[in-house]
Amino acid sequence: MGDGRNHYKEDLRFKIANREALMGVFLAIFNFIWWFAFAYGLGKKPVAEYTYIFGFPAWFFYSCILGFILFSLIVFVMVKLFFFEVPFEDREEDVE
């Protein structure tokens, strides 16, 4: 077995893959912070002092409903603007 080291060259597609994976991780962290901060930031006061938006307690509206809409939008924008199309096959094969 020869020494593979001399010929080693990293697959360039992995640069893109690594960056996109990191974006996914950061988005998840941001998602968690949003969810947690609104839920417990607004939700920890006595229920009698709650404000309501569209009938829902404000903590729930911001954390779960707005959070859902917002992160769906962010995923859309992230994928459309920052995710690149790369071929998966090492060489193009026929795809039906």
């Binding site: 996109e20 994976a21 996914g24 998840a28 998602n31 992160f71």
Partner: peptide
């Protein structure tokens, strides 16, 4: 907390795993 599964798995495993 399950919302994250919609994008996280594919973003992280995503292209690397497929390639």
């Amino acid at each position: 907390s399950q919302l994250v599964t919609g994008y996280f798995t594919l973003a992280v495993l995503g292209k690397k795993f497929a390639i």
